[in-house]
Simulated assay, not measured.
Amino acid sequence: MQLTPVIAIHLAAALAAVAIGPIALWARQGATQRPRLHRAAGYAWVTLMVATAVSAIFITGGPGPRWGDFGLIHLLIPVTLGMLVLSFIYLARRNLVGHRKTMQRIYVGACVVAGAFTLLPNRHLGHSLWSALGVA
């Protein structure tokens, strides 16, 4: 698999989301809260997560069981988009605890865990990384 424009968009959006997510989460923690920073970083993060999920629809290939062009990893697309919607429903209902927990879970699941899986040697990014380091 080569680095196509769709994969480049997906990769750039995902890496930016991994970087911006902690800023949005941190800005509302502790005694000193930063609501403007939280909101700005949060909207940027949500936009990046939507771009990551939508671009993933157009990425095919990879090992494992398949349903047409889609693999198991594609199940994260509706889960991520659905949880983003749910987090804004919580926010509209002023359920800040539900909003916070949902956003934290999306970050851990979609950014940290899914991101770690992309570094496996049989995945495109993982293969590129480990080959460049001389490990694989």
Score class of each variant (00 low, 15 high):
residue 73 I to Y: 13
residue 12 A to K: 13
residue 29 Q to P: 10
residue 88 F to P: 00
residue 97 V to M: 14
residue 24 A to G: 10
residue 95 N to H: 06
residue 127 H to K: 14
residue 61 G to C: 06
residue 14 A to E: 04
residue 102 T to C: 09
residue 91 L to I: 14
residue 6 V to W: 02
residue 8 A to D: 10
residue 39 R to W: 12
residue 63 P to V: 09
residue 29 Q to H: 12
residue 9 I to E: 04
residue 67 W to C: 03
residue 71 G to S: 05
residue 105 R to H: 14
residue 76 L to H: 13
residue 101 K to F: 11
residue 103 M to T: 06
residue 19 A to I: 13
residue 113 V to P: 11
residue 107 Y to V: 00
residue 116 A to Q: 07
residue 37 L to D: 00
residue 119 L to D: 11
residue 67 W to R: 09
residue 63 P to H: 12
residue 49 M to P: 00
residue 85 V to N: 08
residue 15 L to R: 03
residue 6 V to C: 05
residue 104 Q to D: 13
residue 111 C to D: 09
residue 55 S to P: 02
residue 28 R to E: 05
residue 84 L to R: 05
residue 47 T to I: 11
residue 72 L to E: 07
residue 58 F to S: 09
residue 95 N to G: 05
residue 115 G to M: 00
residue 16 A to H: 04
residue 130 W to V: 13
residue 59 I to D: 00
residue 109 G to K: 02
residue 21 G to I: 05
residue 54 V to D: 11
residue 66 R to M: 14
residue 21 G to N: 12
residue 85 V to P: 10
residue 50 V to I: 13
residue 34 R to M: 01
residue 49 M to E: 10
residue 58 F to A: 11
residue 16 A to L: 08
residue 83 M to A: 13
residue 38 H to E: 05
residue 127 H to Y: 14
residue 96 L to I: 10
residue 89 I to L: 06
residue 133 L to Q: 01
residue 72 L to H: 09
residue 17 A to M: 05
residue 106 I to A: 03
residue 71 G to A: 03
residue 135 V to M: 11
residue 87 S to D: 02
residue 33 Q to K: 13
residue 49 M to K: 00
residue 76 L to F: 14
residue 121 P to G: 08
residue 18 V to R: 11
residue 1 M to P: 10
residue 132 A to S: 15
residue 88 F to K: 06
residue 107 Y to H: 00
residue 34 R to F: 01
residue 19 A to F: 12
residue 11 L to Y: 13
residue 106 I to G: 01
residue 55 S to E: 01
residue 105 R to N: 14
residue 50 V to P: 03
residue 51 A to Q: 00
residue 82 G to I: 04
residue 76 L to D: 10
residue 75 L to C: 15
residue 133 L to M: 07
residue 60 T to C: 08
residue 116 A to N: 09
residue 24 A to E: 01
residue 133 L to D: 04
residue 17 A to Y: 06
residue 123 R to D: 08
residue 56 A to Q: 05
residue 91 L to N: 08
residue 14 A to H: 09
residue 22 P to I: 01
residue 112 V to N: 09
residue 116 A to P: 13
residue 79 V to L: 02
residue 91 L to G: 14
residue 81 L to Q: 08
residue 90 Y to A: 06
residue 96 L to H: 12
residue 46 V to Q: 01
residue 98 G to K: 01
residue 34 R to V: 00
residue 1 M to D: 07
residue 47 T to G: 13
residue 62 G to M: 09
residue 24 A to D: 03
residue 80 T to L: 01
residue 128 S to C: 11
residue 54 V to G: 10
residue 17 A to K: 01
residue 23 I to E: 00
residue 75 L to F: 15
residue 115 G to A: 03
residue 113 V to G: 06
residue 43 Y to M: 15
residue 33 Q to T: 06
residue 85 V to M: 13
residue 86 L to W: 10
residue 55 S to N: 04
residue 103 M to L: 12
residue 70 F to L: 07
residue 111 C to E: 07
residue 95 N to D: 15
residue 95 N to I: 00
residue 70 F to Q: 03
residue 36 R to C: 03
residue 103 M to A: 02
